[in-house]
């Protein structure tokens, strides 16, 4: 499909001479080739991320079918309000990130820095809300392995008075739900933390004038990463919070 991309007929090569900006690395022929290569590389990295999270999504699918009542009871312990707010926050940060890419493309340094800072802020808000949720789980003894008690599941959940309490063996299985909850949201949060760390470096470099000189690959590729993290959450939100609301 792309057999003619770079392996073009010889008349395609002379474009070498016309542009040789400082950010063009020596082993690439053209800026376009460098850009395509780096964005393709980033996408391949995102493929590995899909498969990385994919393993956990597969586990979720299997265990939800096995322990449906436990998954319902587990998800009834989450706050849909906080989940929705967090989804909105993350979508907002994706929007500001997209705008940061646009600002870099239009060589607007001030706007770039503003949008990057906004993205950091929204990312931190997300993590703040998430840590509040984690804290609540800890208080309620819902952390498998470290701090878990079946108490909430063998008794009626006051937020859902119609739910029948689970028999003990099924109540034990809520640990699988919370194991997945912490593994999935934890991995997602770890990706957010890595993302925010990189964002801070990007802001510092943007102050120095980087990314607004026509070389936008770094910002663009980081944008891809950030949007990917957003997509993971877009799936985690309904799976963990929403789809088990009704039994």
């Amino acid at each position: 499909m792309d057999s003619q991309a770079i392996a073009t007929s010889p008349e395609h090569t002379p474009s070498v001479e016309h542009a040789h900006p400082p950010y063009l690395r020596h082993h690439f022929e053209t800026v376009e080739q460098q850009r395509e290569a780096s964005s393709f590389g980033m996408w391949l990295f995102l493929l590995t991320e899909i498969m990385f999270f994919g393993g956990m999504f597969a586990a979720y699918l299997i265990y939800r079918n096995w322990y449906y009542p436990a998954f319902v009871a587990g998800s009834h312990q989450l706050s849909i309000v906080l989940g929705t707010i967090n989804t909105a926050v993350l979508i907002g940060s994706s929007f500001t990130m997209a705008m940061a890419v646009y600002s870099a493309e239009t060589r607007n340094r001030k706007a770039l820095i503003t949008y990057l800072l906004l993205t950091i802020t929204l990312g931190l808000v997300f993590l703040g809300i998430k840590s509040d949720e984690y804290h609540e789980k800890w208080e309620k003894h819902h952390v498998p392995g470290l701090n878990f008690s079946v108490h909430d599941f063998v008794n009626v959940n006051p937020a859902y008075p119609d739910d029948k309490p689970l028999p003990l063996d099924m109540a034990e299985k809520t640990q699988v739900y919370f194991s997945l909850y912490f593994a999935m949201t934890g991995m997602h949060a770890l990706h957010m933390i890595i993302g925010i760390s990189i964002l801070i470096i990007l802001v510092i470099k943007a102050y120095g004038g980087s990314y607004t000189d026509g070389h936008v690959s770094t910002i663009e590729n980081f944008g891809l990463y950030w949007h990917f993290v957003d997509i993971v959450w877009i799936f985690l939100f309904p799976l963990l919070y929403l789809i088990s609301r009704h039994q």
């Binding site: 994706s94 997509i231 877009i234």
Partner: peptide, 11 residues
Amino acid sequence: IKAMLVVLFFM
């Protein structure tokens, strides 16, 4: 649908 919108336009 949301993921596709993000992939198609944001990405």
